[in-house]
């Protein structure tokens, strides 16, 4: 199957996904389950990585800005910009693509190869709507919170790294963080997050739903879905940056 066929099939899939759920009660239950699995269970990894990467960004910025003419507050400013513009939305989304994407593909793929999806269809249930829509809504709803947390913890990690190592002063760092604050950058970051969240929910679902074969193929589809999700996030990141910041 060539790329155009895959793209066509992906959009055909979306037309089935975006239908009114057959039972709102069942949909609500599925949604809360997905928020827990796809969102809440990712809190730990995002918090951990954001904190330490924030620290590394601040330290590397400080070590590269050793000219006495450059104010130390620039460290906080550069770290804040890097974290808000790129690290939190893009880097965290790539991590989520690996963690959540492989889970989505393998869970839906296993349902496909064990005929559970056929069972749903025979019952008269729109399986795509039942399985994929709650995942999309859960990621669109929860990932902005997750990425915002990543921003806060990243900036906080930078401050901790400075104060603990003494490489730069905490006061200068906070001054830099507060300097030239532009709320649009937060908006830009959250818009990117929403697009990435949609990619993270739908691309792995596509790979899982249309898998053929057995457990080995589910494993292969899982790997392939993570690769394609990351590729699409990186491409979308470039075009969104061009559209929203230039």
């Amino acid at each position: 199957m060539n790329y155009f066929e895959h793209i066509g099939k992906y959009f055909m899939m979306l037309t089935q996904v975006f239908r009114k759920p057959q039972r709102s009660r069942v949909f609500r239950e599925a949604l809360s389950r997905e928020i827990e699995v796809l969102g809440l269970k990712s809190l730990g990894i995002i918090a951990f990585i954001s904190f330490f990467i924030g620290g590394v960004i601040a330290l590397q910025t400080a070590l590269n800005l050793n000219n006495p003419l450059i104010p130390q507050s620039l460290i906080g400013f550069a770290a804040k910009r890097s974290i808000i513009l790129e690290f939190a939305p893009t880097f965290c989304s790539i991590i989520l693509a690996g963690k959540v994407g492989s889970y989505i593909t393998s869970s839906i793929g296993t349902m496909r190869v064990t005929e559970q999806i056929d069972a749903l269809e025979v019952m008269g249930i729109n399986s795509l709507n039942y399985l994929v829509l709650p995942k999309i809504i859960a990621t669109l709803f929860f990932y902005p919170f997750l990425i915002s947390l990543g921003m806060i913890l990243g900036i906080f990690g930078g401050w901790i790294s400075g104060t603990m190592t003494g490489i730069f002063s905490g006061v200068d760092y906070i001054e830099g963080v507060q300097m030239d604050f532009d709320p649009y950058l937060i908006m830009y970051s959250l818009i990117k997050t929403l697009i990435f969240a949609f990619i993270i929910a739908t691309v792995p679902s596509y790979h899982g739903y249309y898998v053929k074969g057995g457990s080995l193929e589910v494993g292969k589809a899982s790997t392939q879905s993570v690769v394609w999700t990351i590729v699409l996030i990186v491409i979308a990141n470039y075009f969104l940056t061009q559209m929203l910041l230039t």
């Binding site: 005929e115 559970q116 069972a119 019952m123």
Partner: peptide, 17 residues
């Protein structure tokens, strides 16, 4: 409506595990 009148037992049971 017809689908709701069908019951199916799959070879591998196809139960939601």
């Amino acid at each position: 409506q017809l689908r709701q009148e069908l019951g199916m037992v799959f070879q591998g049971s196809a139960l939601f595990d």
